[in-house]
Design a binder for these strands. Structure first.
Lengths: 133, 133
DNA sequence: ATCATTGCAAATGGTTTGCAAGACC
DNA sequence: GGTCTTGCAAACCATTTGCAATGAT
């Protein structure tokens, strides 16, 4: 009756995916991760990468970033921080200084929504693309 | 040499799509719009809807909302306002009170990004779904 | 034995695109 | 005539899924 948490095994594939994701500070897409992980596990499949990213996400070990654009990006840094997306080249970086964002969740009335969360994302031009202008 | 703005014609299809989009306060997906527009233009194709939404977007007459999830949503209300997405049913509504959001764009230094914009999106539970709990 | 997990391949589903016909200047 | 636009269908591409085989407990 109880909703038992699903028993998950830390398989070799899952561990390698998580390690890879934690080792980088960019925010790779599933296929970028697939390419990287394949160097250690040549027989791994893209489907497995997707399935494991989903598991890691549900377990709270990774974040899925929908920053617009076709592909999702993933982040193993689950500490609170914001993201900037370069409107020119599409890369996504962290923003660590959060002092300039001030959001007070509105009380649950208004049009009746009970607000449960906010997402703040920045657009910008990365240093590389700035130099190239 | 100059980048002339493309000459666009306000075709019947484009007008009907825009009218439909302006007439509703929800934020329809392309295929919802397609279904609605088809009542007036039974022979219109989904491809035409997509192409016109793209044109309207570039012309600044409509906004494309990427609120996560598979499909994009569109909005003909281009005045500044925020959106809430119901985490339960997926519908998207406007938030008109912006007093509780205070964001100061950071100066262009930090890791080097020149910040050009912010996106703020809310999650919540809509009144309908709240009642149904 | 049981049950999560995998590799593989096929399927899905939203969006885009090539092309020939049609509409507008 | 030139060019923007359309309908149709096929193509695209990220992601998901069915399934038989594998692995861990």
């Amino acid at each position: 009756m109880m909703n038992e948490p699903a028993k998950q095994r830390m398989t070799r594939q899952r561990q390698v995916i998580l390690d890879e994701l934690m080792s980088r500070k960019d925010h790779p897409t599933a296929d970028e991760l697939y390419a990287a992980v394949r160097r250690k596990l040549p027989r791994i499949s893209l489907g497995t990468v997707y399935r494991n990213l989903d598991v890691l996400m549900r377990s709270g070990l990774a974040l899925k970033l929908d920053m617009g654009g076709a592909q999702s990006r993933f982040d193993a840094d689950i500490s609170p921080h914001y993201h900037v997306k370069c409107v020119s080249c599409g890369r996504v970086d962290d923003i660590r200084e959060t002092g300039f964002v001030e959001i007070t969740l509105p009380p649950s009335r208004d049009d009746g929504y009970a607000i449960t969360g906010v997402r703040v994302e920045f657009d910008g031009i990365c240093p590389q693309c700035r130099g190239r202008e």
